[in-house]
Write a protein that binds this DNA or RNA. Sequence first.
DNA 1: TCACATTAGACAACAAGGTTGTCGTTGTCC
DNA 2: GGACAACGACAACCTTGTTGTCTAATGTGA
Lengths: 159, 159
Amino acid sequence: MPRSGADLALLLLAGFRSLADAATEELARRGYEDMRPAHDFAMRAIIAGADNASELGRRLSVSKQAAAKTIAVLQERGYVGRDTDPQDARRKRLEVTPLGFEVLRQGEAVFDELREQWQRQIGSAELASLEAHLTTLVGARPVRLDAPGWTAHDLGGPA
Amino acid sequence: MPRSGADLALLLLAGFRSLADAATEELARRGYEDMRPAHDFAMRAIIAGADNASELGRRLSVSKQAAAKTIAVLQERGYVGRDTDPQDARRKRLEVTPLGFEVLRQGEAVFDELREQWQRQIGSAELASLEAHLTTLVGARPVRLDAPGWTAHDLGGPA
DNA sequence: TCACATTAGACAACAAGGTTGTCGTTGTCC
DNA sequence: GGACAACGACAACCTTGTTGTCTAATGTGA
């Protein structure tokens, strides 16, 4: 049982990686290779209204150039489409394709399965309370997505 | 309250980032700029016996070349020293310097403070149970540090 | 209406932290 | 002694970020 604060941090990271790695693996098994959480986040942001690169960058707290790179990947794989905005010739309007929606749907299903596994392991009430407590803690000191950055190395994993 | 598996994953990530960001900020405030969790992990591994680059790579589930790069940074900042091994001329023996130990000590103090904050927020018993449950879950499906990599972008933050 | 500031997106250069592959040197084992 | 393993160094490259600069399009205020 961890006692130090550092152990607690590591535990949270391990929990996240455990879920995320399993999800990525399963998604790859289902034919969606190289899907990464960031792609998921980006697509959701696009759906939520960030329909151009600059806006997407702002939503993800990332430079517009970085957002453009992510979009390029997503577009290459057919998950998002892009066409010029009739209202503003500077903009390229983004939209998630049916294939993109399919990936999102499957990703959600995979995560839900993983959560059910956890529920079976520690019990429904316990998992719910764990989530509730974490929500309290995180809510009290909200994640600063614009905080100093973390890289794969920081997070204990190879890239 | 989160219900989906994806929300759970995000919650864990948010928890980690919340702690880690706060710790890095505080450490920077105390004069240790550019300290990253990876540096901390690496130093601990060195202390735990990974006293050469190849071994450090293995412990961190990272290539020996990547480990060497991390060591170079740590050495440059005076946190670790290196000298040739009298027993084996191929090896360069690593050792954490007093300055390195000082950073580790302060890092620990910072994390412990953060943990205490959390304890005050949700209660000692609750935090302990959260940790215990997470340990169970993570232990049951151990974090694969050699799994497909996660980058800062994946983790929702800029680099 | 015209000048000026702002914005979108493209492109280039670079940083950090990884990867693989190669190589020379050193150790170990039969 | 010779084959093989392992250490560290070096180089090339990938990914995901970052700035900075540029052009084209748009908005705005005198």
